[in-house]
Nucleic acid binder design. Sequence first.
RNA 1: GCCGGGGUGGCGAAAUGGCAGACGCUACGGACUUAAAAUCCGUUGACCGCAAGGUCGUGUGGGUUCGACUCCCACCCUCGGCACCA
Length: 882
Amino acid sequence: DSFGQPAEQAAIKRGIQPRDWTEENIAHMRGQLQRLGVSYDWRREIAAHRPDFYKWDQWFFLKMFERGLAYKRKSAVNWCPKEETVLSNEQSSGGICWRCGTPVVKREIEQWFLRTTKYAEELVEHIKEIEAGWPEKVLKRQRDWVGRSEGAYIDFAVKQHDEKVRVFTTRIDTIFGATAIVLSAEHPLLPKLLEGSSLKDDVMQFAEKAKGARAIKTEDAAEEEEKLGINTGQLAVNPFNGELLPIWVANYVLMDYGAGAVMSVPAHDQRDFDFAHKYTLPIRQVIAPIVHGQQGESADVTPGSDQSMDMKAAFTEYGVLVSSGEWSGKLSHDAMREMADYAAERKFGGGAVTYRIRDWGISRQRFWGAPIPIVYCGNCGTVPVPEKDLPVMLPNKAEFTGTGESPLKNVPEFVNTVCPKCGRPAKRETDTMDTFVDSSWYFFRYTDPRNETMPFDPAIAAKWIPVDQYIGGDSHAVMHLIYARFWNKVMRDLGLVKSNEPVKRLLTQGMVTNRVEGTNDWKAMSKSLGNGVDPDEMIRAYGADATRMFVLFAAPPENELRWSETGIEGAVRFLRRVWTMVYRWRDQLRDQLKGQGTPAAKLEFSDAARALRRKTHQTIARVTDDFEKLDLNTNVAALMELSNALAEFNVDRASASPADAFAAREAIEALVVMLAPFSPHVAEEMWEGLGHEGGLLLAAAVWPMADPELARKEELEIPVQVNGKLRSRVIVAPDISEADLRALAFSDEKVSSFIDRNDYVTAIPVPQRLVNVVVKRWDERLDEHGFDAIIWASGEHPVTSNRKITFIFKEKGNDKRVTIAEDLIPNKAGDQYSAAGQVSQELEARGIQDVVVTLETELNRSVIDIKMKGESELIRVIKPYR
RNA sequence: GCCGGGGUGGCGAAAUGGCAGACGCUACGGACUUAAAAUCCGUUGACCGCAAGGUCGUGUGGGUUCGACUCCCACCCUCGGCACCA
């Protein structure tokens, strides 16, 4: 993306030609990227400023021109009246010329536009095709940028004129509350309406002033500006009720959105409300909030009256219509639909969709961009340059004065040409294209970079496009990424691509920022701020591999990375450790490396070797998966873990047995291969060190495959919680059943120590993860369930070594204790049932329903289950036999 | 003002609703060294305890859940975007 401002600025400042400056930079950066080992396919390098590329910018322009997608119209630019030049937004910041301090004015000049508005609907609609792969924050900003909004147009007839004022509203349901019509200062109808009016001069003067004020307001967020207006003295007719409304002109109505005019409904729009307050226009409430079926009162409120005091702000929500003729009593949403239909039937309006997106102005009064391929002929007018004459070449040299005018204007060989139609002398367009034009489609050119007859061959592009993964900063969330989507749709309609969207997955990469010296600000590195870090210096100090690894390890890619060199030593150390292992172990692993070792199937692996192999295969699986998700930082962490595991698996053992050697070789080879994407140079060296010299380069080696069988854990250490707090751990087989896991938790000694004799206990086993033993007091638990009585398990613990169980009920609000079951000895099957049965009976006798009691004895424990009403879960009293 | 992202040790950061702090940096202690650097070993969320161990802890307050950094509600702070879009 080599066209644009910086090259031209350098030309102005240093008297160097943009082309030379640009080519120098490209060469420099190419060198840096290569030194970093970034493996692009350099045969596909392209640059926007080279004629074989910008020729196609021009070609696309011509195609759009043919189809009416490129057109010219007058449009405002920032203009310094003293220097008579166009200023960029930055140059006119604060409303004054950056050089001479003269107040900036808006000036209308002819400019070229691309009709992005034609694709407004698709730009919203097709979001659903990409939303799975794009960050929500980007999609949100794109939706806002397009700014689709549904509403209605309404035409208001102007009294005593044969004219209509059209307004757009999203709240047609409030139309009975309209108390004025407000036009933009730039409204084209304004002069006509004022003809012959005594107010003409005053109003036009106001309009001029309002326009001027707007011009000065540049991007330096004009503070909440006061709403100013003037009554034109004209009246408009509300088509819904025939009411006459005064027509005003005001500074807060934008010409280039909707219809350039609004109906003012002070009661239900905050801006209209503010305006009405200032100019004491009536405020009439026609929407009432829906409150418990009650409908609010409607009221005509004039400022100063009691009612207007009540209303501190507009009520902008939906509600119920009041004082709205036949629509009174309807809900906003129904009314909106019906009223739009009503207007359509009577032909004074109807439902409509508007968009906030504007056509894309691509004219730049600059040198360093693709010339717009247009010729102006005194005879034939605006004539497109024929395709065969492309590219329209930028001249090699120009004068850079920095006055703000296109330097092309002062290159006669460029400007003077002949008309392609009639052959008479003619002049070229001297504006060049916005650089976003280049960036809108450059990646398509990668697929077919040297094509001389087309921008790219559709058949070749079809293999690559849509892009699987696009990476860019979120500063491009709207401009570039909207234009690229627009361009894709244009190309689709030209038959060049099939898909609606150019990019399936988008990663918005975070900036690498650095402190700006002398401040506390962290800003993206840049030359002008002097906070850059030279990659070459990093490479010199730490090497390309450690630099790469550190940057990828330090934070996830979408985070901002605040630059700091503390930490990069860690990457150096890590690589050095792996390096040392490779060269220290290569002799012990020699047979394995030569492929002469015993095959794995015939080897007996020790526990440690099996553990190492497990780690190896787990790491392969994790790294492979994390690459797919672009979780590169955790990816590096995984490699470090494998390296740590290898270091623990020490070298003497590796030399001791073929099985250990096998495991070590497997681990270290996998590690080296997986290291390659991060640190390619050192990995390649290590690969050679592992005995692959003369064979395939590591860059061409096969990515290791994870064997799930080997990655599987042989046993698991399962944490045991009591009431959510970690208390113990048990070692289990990975396929242990829930029941066994539960039993194991109950029998754990540490767990038992948290269980009081009068508690009841249950457990939530989560296979592979943990067990949570829930211990509660019986009374709490029963209370929660609304039982009338409290059970105590008393005397000896419910099932004890002497196997005596005693249940005691304590009635609520009564201290009397009632023993319901005593001396139950669950010994044989029959006894169990009778014991359980006895408890059930007693419970029922006391009016406690829905309780199922079972009693079971297992090898080393006894359990009483009591099933509470409405619960599937068992509450257990449990005690292991001693 | 509206919209969006984010708030976890001294720092960068991990954690399909299931052991908070993986991995690394820093710092501290130790080994090696005449010494330093490098390297290696150990400690490193806070608090209590000689220890075993315990208590607290993911911005704040509530909620859901056997269980919440993770889900829900309200609020605070912060970064970013938009800012008269009818």
